[in-house]
């Protein structure tokens, strides 16, 4: 579904991604772990071109999205994104946050969009917050709404950029629950996270990144149980201890 070929990204002289070749299959849940500054977030953000790669190619459903001619706005509708800082639109209510994309981007009428929104709000148990502004929500509620906002566009893949990293510990569970339910639905997901438990539990594949390269990847049981590289062992010993 998503394929990257020799994907590179530099900020000035500093190369953050040093040639990533990766293939994410339809229905796969790929979890990306690694120390901070390893390039994992940048890798994710390159996938929907929030970050422009310096060189290399990204193919999404067979289309080269790094091509200038590619309609990135059209492609982004198919790639839902969830941010560490939630980034709910502060000037809109919860319901408007969810429906603005379907209405303004996909051209759905308001009634149709709201039906989708309420169905998804039911799913995350936040129907009663429909007319609330984001500033009145807890972090966990904000992130669940942010997931709903992305889902309302009917994406083929969901990209999660450290979705639980800025949550209070007691709110992590409610967000992971929503993500688990997406896994159960067969959603294709790429998740950058520090939640090793979640990675073990639902990941089909775990990528360990360090210094701009994928050092090692494997099914969770193997990568966590029997890491091959020193850097992987070192990292895991720090986060799992």
């Amino acid at each position: 579904m998503i394929e990257t070929r020799n994907l590179r990204k530099s900020f000035g002289d500093h190369e953050v991604l040093c040639g990533i070749d990766e293939h994410i299959e339809k229905g796969e849940v790929v979890v990306v772990i690694g120390p901070s500054g390893s390039g994992k977030s940048t890798f994710l953000r390159c996938l929907n071109r929030l970050e422009e790669s310096t060189s290399g190619e990204i193919l999404f459903e067979g289309i080269n999205i790094t091509d200038k001619a590619a309609d990135i706005n059209k492609l982004r509708q198919k790639m839902g994104m969830v941010f560490q800082q939630f980034n709910l639109f502060t000037n809109l209510t919860v319901l408007e946050n969810i429906t603005i994309g379907p209405i303004k981007v996909k051209g759905l009428d308001k009634k149709e969009a709201e039906e989708i929104a309420y169905r998804l709000l039911d799913r995350v148990g936040l129907r009663d917050k429909a007319h609330t502004y984001p500033s009145r929500l807890s972090g966990g509620q904000k992130q669940r709404i942010a997931i709903v906002r992305a889902l309302a566009m009917g994406p083929d893949v969901m990209l999660f950029d450290e979705p639980t990293s800025s949550l209070d510990p007691e709110m992590v569970g409610e967000v992971l629950d929503v993500m688990r339910s997406l896994v159960a639905d067969g959603m294709t997901m790429v998740v950058v996270t520090h939640e090793m438990g979640f990675a073990k539990e639902v990941g089909d594949r775990v990528l360990f990144m360090d210094e701009g390269v994928i050092v090692e990847q494997n099914v969770p049981a193997e990568l966590f149980g029997n890491p091959q590289h020193e850097r992987t062992k070192d990292f895991l010993s720090k986060v799992l201890s």
């Binding site: 059209k74 800082q85 981007v105 942010a146």
Partner: peptide, 26 residues
């Protein structure tokens, strides 16, 4: 916050839509 623009673009809004619907009202 730049995150507002990123979120707007990530649902497929054009730069102009993000500016008019999300950024300017804030």
């Amino acid at each position: 916050d730049i995150g507002q623009t990123e979120a707007a673009r990530s649902v497929g809004m054009t730069g102009r839509q993000a500016m008019g619907l999300i950024i300017l009202p804030q």
